[in-house]
Design a protein around this nucleic acid. Sequence first.
DNA 1: ACTCTCGCTTGATCAAAATCAAGCGTGTGC
DNA 2: GCACACGCTTGATTTTGATCAAGCGAGAGT
Lengths: 258, 258
Amino acid sequence: MPIRNTETSRVRNTPLFRGANDSAFAMALSGAFLQRFPAGTTLLMEGDSVDFLYILLEGAVELGASWKSKDTTLAIIRPVSTFILAAVVLDSDALMSASTLERSEILMVPGESLRRAMKSDANFCFAVSEELAGCYRGLVRSVKNHKLRDSTERLANYLLTQRARQGGKDTILLPHEKRVLASLLGMTPENLSRAFAKLSAQGVSVDGAQVQLGKIPALERLARPSPLIDNHYAQPKNELGESHIERGKGLLDGVAAL
Amino acid sequence: MPIRNTETSRVRNTPLFRGANDSAFAMALSGAFLQRFPAGTTLLMEGDSVDFLYILLEGAVELGASWKSKDTTLAIIRPVSTFILAAVVLDSDALMSASTLERSEILMVPGESLRRAMKSDANFCFAVSEELAGCYRGLVRSVKNHKLRDSTERLANYLLTQRARQGGKDTILLPHEKRVLASLLGMTPENLSRAFAKLSAQGVSVDGAQVQLGKIPALERLARPSPLIDNHYAQPKNELGESHIERGKGLLDGVAAL
DNA sequence: ACTCTCGCTTGATCAAAATCAAGCGTGTGC
DNA sequence: GCACACGCTTGATTTTGATCAAGCGAGAGT
């Protein structure tokens, strides 16, 4: 599918590409193409070799992993974000699978073009480093979240993060199915229900995807959100693990994850 | 402390710096100095601003994090490795604390010098991207290890990884105190003991820091090591979480972590 | 030698989370 | 409308891991 001007400029204005010079940008996108996928499409399986950098322009994609018949979701990507950048830079196999949660529009950039562009433009290359560093720090937050908090605490912090991201209103909308959310938070759907039930003591009430946060102070007392784990203050669109991706230097609009 | 020639060449031959041109290398190390620390020294606390890239030349350092009076170790670094690269690239605060486990020798490279060198040499900058990508993938493995395996499985895989790394002999030496190992594996010291006891059914017997792996096939049947989680085949010196850091392209000698 | 500390182990108990098994409610397709 | 599937919830049970409390044994200091 041909790339329209609107898409090009959206990508161009991303922190990743904003500082690139025109020839590096053109080089990176040479051979790139736009593709649409229905919900539930598997884009990539663990272990597959990675030939493209994926840039999500519309929709949502889930990054997951499995082992011995168990599986878990590691991150959910929202536009505008890249994914599998690390595998592309190293020209190696995917450590995660990727599949669409919704109908999605994805720009596929050949890995080789991207690597050549990086080597031709130190500023662009630096932006890639910043991007990777942000992804890395997002994952560090995720590991800390999992190793230091129990499931109810993770949920409480997730709710506070969503609140901040959805504009600070006291009613939030869960952006995904509860089973997906449970997997992201590292628990079973059953336990997610029970965790919500526990949080009713902190004024949380659930009605479908709508969640009312009745007593924010009580919720915060339990959640104890920390800027060293939770990333409330980043750009509004990204989700990685339960916490969120950091941007290079206060830039908006997130290109991120893996 | 002045930097001797031996140190300079060790650093120069690292995957990170090998491809840099001479002026970028000189620029990066301008203002760098060598420092020795006794065991148990805190180098950095969570939230501190990061002014230096640390390059560990001798000894061992633990990267940890804490929240609400709990704490955990996220990685243990061995020479030659960098740490807190991501924070340096983004010129931001540390998400982990760092402290020496043994008497250590560390080269401290000013962050600003490093960033200037990156911007002046696309090849060096690319090597930093590769390094960050490798660190990222190491963390992805770590998250998968924790979300998909229970504690006994993590220990079993840790033992197999150590075996591969220590030359394939059936007796391995635990490189750290058991309490540190427990924290790295995400469990309490008590449960580490019990996990070892469980693995006696797989021929594992412990005597202090010496561990005999009696029945490798049985142990592998339980552990089910996977190249998508465990990194047996990387360079021998690095440890990140339970699994291990990946190198750019089959290069030896690891500069890694955060 | 003697005690103290410290790292580790072991057992008993408790809490958290996974699993198993219904059941409920909504939406879809027939 | 009716049956069915599906996502979610709830309860009962089991498993896993954390916590509490001794105790053991090797090494350090006196």
